[in-house]
């Protein structure tokens, strides 16, 4: 069986490898499809539903990140309905938690924020929930801020599939679901965390971040000049030269 197949994306005929998902096929032909929970190198879960596309002959919208591309498939990635549904999906995420971009550690480095602009979300039509959520600073190097979490579970998957530490899991159910460290332990006294920081790298938003990089945490090295001066013996006794 030839491993190269051809599918039609938004009317244009493109090449793809057999076994690729529609999302991968689109990406390799730089056709834009949004996707928050999708991450190269991790298993696909089809949770954020942003990458949903229309496939001719199928009356249901299909998640492109989990649906294998088949030869002769005709895929539509942009339509009024899809754009409206994606905007609604993003707005639901914004309304669900406390996404205060202005003071977020990941301001301007957040996939949620970027998709909002790209898909034309200028405001959120749903009522904000303002949930009371925890910020766990107990880890010496990292911090997890549940206010910014979109439950894409990239952190859970990278910790299980790549690092193999199984620190993170999704606890609770429904709207009460939240990322939890082991038996709901503080991250600082986790038993199995290897401090590798992979979860921080894959997190699309400001939920997982490295300490010390937020503007507010900036500590200027005030002792620098004095130390150099003493080494060079050019310490100035104070007063005009």
């Amino acid at each position: 069986m030839p491993n190269r197949i051809s599918i039609r994306i938004d009317g244009e005929l493109v090449q793809a490898e057999r076994g690729q998902t529609i999302f991968e096929a689109a990406q390799s032909n730089n056709k834009f499809i949004p996707g928050l929970c999708q991450f190269k190198g991790l298993s696909t879960v089809g949770a954020c539903r942003l990458c949903v596309v229309e496939v001719q002959g199928v009356n249901r919208l299909l998640p492109s990140c989990t649906t294998p591309a088949q030869d002769g498939m005709a895929v539509i990635t942009k339509s009024a309905r899809l754009n409206d549904y994606r905007r609604q999906s993003l707005e639901l995420l914004f309304a669900e938690k406390n996404h205060v971009c202005a003071v977020c550690v990941s301001n301007n480095h957040c996939e949620l924020q970027a998709y909002a602009q790209r898909l034309g979300v200028t405001n959120v039509r749903y009522a904000y929930r303002y949930p009371k959520l925890h910020v766990d600073m107990s880890h010496p190097r990292f911090v997890i801020d549940h206010n910014r979490c979109v439950l894409c579970t990239r952190c859970v998957r990278v910790c299980n599939e790549v690092e193999g530490a199984y620190v993170w899991g999704v606890a609770g159910r429904g709207i009460g679901s939240r990322i939890a460290c082991e038996m709901d332990r503080a991250w600082g006294n986790s038993a199995s965390c290897t401090n590798c920081g992979k979860c921080v790298q894959v997190c699309p938003t400001g939920a997982l971040a490295e300490k010390g990089f937020a503007a507010e945490e900036m500590v200027k090295r005030q002792d620098l000049v004095e130390r150099l001066a003493t080494i060079r013996g050019t310490m100035n006794p104070g007063g005009p030269r």
């Binding site: 879960v45 089809g46 949770a47 954020c48 539903r49 609604q88 999906s89 639901l92 995420l93 309304a95 669900e96 749903y126 009522a127 929930r129 979109v150 439950l151 579970t153 999704v170 609770g172 159910r173 429904g174 709207i175 009460g176 679901s177």
Partner: peptide, 21 residues
């Protein structure tokens, strides 16, 4: 359904919460 949603995908988890609201 909002209290029985598994919470994995946004439309059902967050959508049903807003629909209920």
């Amino acid at each position: 359904t909002h209290s029985e949603s598994c919470g994995k995908c946004t439309p059902c988890r967050a959508g049903l919460d807003q629909a209920l609201r």
